[in-house]
Design a protein around this nucleic acid. Sequence first.
DNA 1: CCGTTTGTTCTGCC
DNA 2: GGGCAGAACAAACG
Length: 268
Amino acid sequence: MPELPEVETVVRHLKPDLIGQKIISFQSNWSKVLDNINIDQFLETISDQKILDVTRRAKFIVLNLEKGFIPIHLRMTGRLFPNDRIPDEKHISAVFQLSDIFLIFKDTRKFGRIYWYDEWSDFDIKHGIEPLGELFTQEWLLMSIHSKKRQMKALLLDQHFIAGLGNIYVDEALWSARIHPLSISNEVSSVKIKRLHRSIRAILESAIVYNGTTFINFSFKDGIPGSYRNQLQIFDREGLLCKRCNTTIKKIRAAGRGTYYCTRCQKR
DNA sequence: CCGTTTGTTCTGCC
DNA sequence: GGGCAGAACAAACG
């Protein structure tokens, strides 16, 4: 279940292998893998184009071509990796044949999608602020959270609000800032929101250093795992003790997701 | 067959 | 009609 740090990790590892490669062809083994373009148009548009860069926006891996962009969303179980041949495995949703290498999109659950955009802005405006970008300031977060009246967990998971946080890092950030996941955004104190701003940045930056949190079955290149899992303070620790106050960690449902929090540190 | 997992889209309420 | 919560959905697996 890749979130921002995992996607960033994939992007950084793909970059050196993909930059400068030309797209020779594309094949899909799963008709729904292309989300907003049909295969014929896609083939015609991308063939012979060079990959100029590989970047990240929200939780999308973006192939920047000479003309246009291919955002790829891994969703739950998607994996994107370069290989010298097409693997003889199940669940290969799509394959890009490049000049020197194949780019494989393997996706067991088939929720992952490939998109096409001519214009960067058409894609960009669909997503919220980048939490590691310079527009994401303490003032912005304070104002934006106080101007809404929503459960904190649901708000932070909303990709139109902040792009890139998912279930793991939201729980970690809320624990770090000592905010109850069900507290209502306009009632959370300014002190806590300022703390949240610092927490979000610090947690994401640290998770990127550790190559993300491999959880269940996400991994990049050759299954090398991210190791932030060992740094988790609250997520997936139901029944264990809070590292700050030794209270037993509880699991509840918030915004329809399994949510871990400390009943003592994170008061409503 | 059911529960579980995710982000997005929908539906319906206020 | 905006803001919001919650259901539905996309598939596969055990």
